[in-house]
Nucleic acid binder design. Sequence first.
DNA 1: TAGATTGTTAATCGATTAACAATC
DNA 2: TAGATTGTTAATCGATTAACAATC
Lengths: 208, 208
Amino acid sequence: MKEKFVPDIVVKRLPWYLQTLNQMAREGLHTVSSIALADRVGTSGAQIRKDLSYFGEFGKQGTGYSIYFLIEQLQKILKVDRIWRVSVVGAGNLGRALTRYQGFANRGIDICLLFDNDPGLVGIRVNSLIVRHVDSMADDIQDMKVKMAILTLPSEAAQATADVLVGAGIQAILNYTPAALMLPKHIQVEHIDPVLQLQRMMYYLGEE
Amino acid sequence: MKEKFVPDIVVKRLPWYLQTLNQMAREGLHTVSSIALADRVGTSGAQIRKDLSYFGEFGKQGTGYSIYFLIEQLQKILKVDRIWRVSVVGAGNLGRALTRYQGFANRGIDICLLFDNDPGLVGIRVNSLIVRHVDSMADDIQDMKVKMAILTLPSEAAQATADVLVGAGIQAILNYTPAALMLPKHIQVEHIDPVLQLQRMMYYLGEE
DNA sequence: TAGATTGTTAATCGATTAACAATC
DNA sequence: TAGATTGTTAATCGATTAACAATC
């Protein structure tokens, strides 16, 4: 796959395309044009064609794209064509809810480790996992070659824990705490904070 | 507050500024320059000055911004200077975890309603709330004049439920399901899907 | 063949950055 | 006063869109 530099804003859209294509496949469709796909995703045909052109030529003039083939290609590009082991750090309400979340299994994600520092939580079972103590976190992550982690712990502990994770070989962190993490820039970080998203929407709400 | 049209990308950054300023206030700081704030947020001084200029003049040449004053102004702009009642729809693991989340209380958000359609969940207590049946959802939301909702239910039910919410006067929806919602464009929607964020990061992960 | 749709180039649009006069 | 930093304008940069030759 010859890949020139791809803007991050393009990479961000690929999972959306993939998800929509999977949905279309489930509906029994076989072929889709850039415009039909764009309508479903909420973008333009030109943008989809441009985005895909960073990675190769996947369509046929006159007929569009084979859904099955395009799914396969996008999975390769995003490296979703394998199972990634992911560790959840923090076994509070949110950490346990995510560990139990059914939506990961079919989409390339295997939650395989769950940690907490609360002795009252260590040892309990969540789904098929047993909560482990953070003391063994670095070792466990190295042993299992885990590359991604989800942070669901109190924000006071977020930075220190993230540092340990990076030291243990974690390359991507999905941060559910309100803390802004300072990490080497080769580490991928995504931040989820429902408060920030709700506040953005408040701007657009009518008075009373 | 004279407000020309403000690009959404600017509005999206305001909650970040607000959060960082609050953090600085907690650290005992009183004044900040655009560059000092930018360093903490991870942007540039020019961008912060430009963004703020859409709403007015809040700084002083030579000294920068009063943190306290700027927090006050941003809260007004975002309408975070009041408490917004929010309904959680779906009392599964994630819905209960969000209802219990401590981070909402001090940041302008009051989770005041929690719904489910499972008779086994209706009536149980989560924090100080009792799970109500979705049958009364439209009425309850209208009675309490709730304008924002958080969707944490199976994706099959997401669209139909969102339609009911909009009918009941909901103006902003934070969607935790993988479903893409089709709603009138005056309705604000934010989508949180950890799978999409993890997949984006997979692109950047090294092979093995 | 005629119609449809791709991949790509050039044109447009919008966002970020640089620069600096104004001024605290 | 001298130094610092704002608010704003103009220049740059990057992303989106329009258009169309190529071709299935």
